[in-house]
Each structure stands twice: as C-alpha cells, then as structure tokens.
Simulated assay, not measured.
Amino acid sequence: MTASPAPGLDEIVASAHVLSLPMRTRFRGITTREVLVFSGPAGWGEFGAFPEYDDAEASAWLRAGIEMAWQGAPDPMRDHVEVNATVPAVPAAEVPAVLARYPGTRTAKVKVAEKGQTLADDVARVEAVRALVPTVRVDANGGWTVDQAETALRALTENGDLEYAEQPCATVEELAEVRRRVRGVSIAADESIRRAEDPLRVVRAGAADVAVVKVPPLGGVRAVLRLAEELAQYGVPVVVSSALDSAIGMSAGLAAAAALPTSTACGLGTGALFVTDVAEPRALVDGRLRVDTVVPDADRLRELAAPDDRRAWWLERLARCHPLALL
C-alpha cells in the first residue's frame, strides 16, 4: 500500500474519539484505560501513551497510530498469531477464572513484584498458573532490586521452569547482574528497550536473552520490524506484546507479529482485560488470534466516550505531540 502524505492536526481531530475503557481488574496500576482513536485513508489508528509519559516519548505512540491509519500494515507472513495469557497480580484462587478467558493458550505471562504484595503471593500465583498452563513467563516491570530478583527467581523456579523473567530490575546494569547471578532463567528486556534512546544498548551490554517489543512506544510496525532485524544479529529473539491497546491498537501489534519471519507466543491477548472494547473481541481459537484490522462500533464509541475534561486533555496533548510525531 502506498503511504498517504502525513496528516495535518485538523485531519486527525476531525475523526478523533477519546475513550475510557473499563478493566476487569487492576493492571499496571489502573482500572480504566484511556486512548484516543482516529481514522485515516488506510483505516484506524490509536494514540494511547500513558498519561505520565512526556510529549517526546508520547509522540512515538502517535507516530505508530498515524502509520496504521495513513499507511496501513505491511504484508503478513501468517494469518494467525499465537498469544500468551496475561495474568494480573490477582490472588492465586482467581487464576483459573483469569485463564478461562484465554482458551487454548499454552503460555502465560504472570505479573509479579506488585506493590503491597509479597514474594509468597507471587509464588502462589505462579504455581496456580503452572498447574494449568505448561509454559510460564513472569513480568516484574522493573520492580525488584538485584538481590530481590535473585531471591525471587530462585523461589519461582523451585518447582518448575520459567521461560523467561521480563524486566526483573529497572536498569540495564541490574539486568546484566541478575543474568550473571541466575544462570537458569532467561532475562527479557521490555522497558529497557521501549523507553531507551538506544534500544540495542541492553543486548550490547549482555543484559538480555529476549526482547519484548511493543509497537506504539517504538513508533510503528515498521520500526519494530527494523529493530527485530538488528536484534537478530545479536541472536536475541523478539516477543511482540501489547501496550494495553484497545482492539484498534491491537491491530498494529498483530500486524508486527505476523510480519516477522518467526513468531513465538505474543503478549497480544490483553483484550481479555477489558470489560468492553471499541469492537467485538477477537475470537481466541486454540490460543491464536486472527491477524486483521477492526472498525469500531459506532454505539460503543458513544458509550465509551471519556468525560469532556479528559477529551480536552487528550486533544491538547495531541496538538503538542503532533509536530514531534512528524519529525
């Protein structure tokens, strides 16, 4: 598909909807997900940078949305993508109900290191998942110190393996140290790649075995594919994951995963975390999602519309980020 010229701000605002999506349980510290969606000549795009991100960082998210709406997705290499279940930091007793929303999945990513919880809570949750799903990953979102990570990872692997531990600590140097100390667990980098000026620094430093990549913060599907090529030169595979995207934003993640030469279970099943979304949920069949794009339901756009003050906040942010996104 030939790319259309970059849109002016007025073109984006003309079709913009600011949405407030209710969530089934607290995830990443929030119970409501706000996003701004808009349409262009190639379809719909999403701008959903988290509110705490500054304009420079948020502009990459807008660039990714513009790419999908004005340029569309690259040609896919497959029409379905395997996904992992995502288990928030819920009590172990709630794990079966969470996993029931992910029929056929054979991999689960489990949130750990939640503030206010203990290592015993993490171990119980992981064991509950391990009893039902053969392959388990954990994600600490940088929440541990090196010593805490070492202790936790040894406890979490006492009764079974982990495919990898995602971002156990915040810094590249800490990741490298954990990787040195805990030999039996692969280390995956997420924030150290998507929030870094140099996404390759983490692999050059020998701090990661796996790279978790997300389309919006990296600036688009094609940017993800370029980074995946570079990472392959270091022998580091990528796992495409969601940035807590709506059904519209998820189209970009699916497009990236489908365009990679090879693909492992991706973190693109997070639509199950929403009570309702802008379109009918994609059907998860045998742990896989079909690669497609969606058109939002008009009634849902109205029902999920954010309050006026939040719409104004997002439109002001859009205006600030627009010139940065086009650089």
Rank of each mutant, 00 (worst) to 15 (best):
Q117A: 11
L273P: 01
I30T: 09
E46P: 03
E280H: 15
S246Y: 04
A165L: 07
F274A: 08
S20K: 13
E34K: 15
E52T: 14
S20W: 04
V146L: 10
V240E: 00
P76I: 08
G104I: 14
R125F: 11
V81T: 07
P168D: 08
V126H: 01
R204E: 15
T135N: 12
R222Q: 15
T270A: 10
Y53N: 11
L156D: 04
P96N: 15
E303T: 13
A256Q: 00
V185C: 04
R26E: 15
E94Y: 02
E230D: 13
N141W: 04
A170C: 13
H322W: 11
V236M: 10
E229A: 12
V126G: 01
L225T: 05
L218A: 05
V240M: 06
V203L: 03
A85S: 08
L318V: 06
R106P: 00
Y102L: 09
P5G: 12
E303G: 14
E177A: 14
D245C: 12
G45P: 01
E303I: 13
P134T: 14
L36W: 01
E82A: 13
V236I: 12
L156P: 00
M1P: 13
D190N: 11
A165S: 10
A56Q: 15
A149S: 15
A16F: 08
R201E: 12
F38G: 00
P103E: 14
F38N: 00
P261Y: 02
T145H: 11
R311S: 09
P199V: 07
T171R: 08
P74A: 11
A42D: 09
G40R: 01
P296I: 10
E158F: 09
A252E: 03
P323I: 14
A58W: 01
V212E: 00
E166A: 07
D79V: 10
P199F: 05
G271D: 07
A6W: 10
A155S: 14
G43C: 09
A108M: 06
A283L: 10
H322D: 04
A196H: 09
G219N: 05
D309P: 03
D161I: 07
S59E: 06
V185L: 09
A113S: 11
A120V: 14
A211V: 07
S242D: 08
R28H: 11
E280N: 14
R180I: 06
A131N: 12
A3Y: 07
P281H: 14
V112K: 01
V178N: 00
T293P: 04
G143E: 05
M77V: 15
P168R: 01
L227C: 13
A140F: 03
A196R: 06
P261F: 03
K111N: 05
P51L: 15
R180D: 10
A100I: 15
E127T: 06
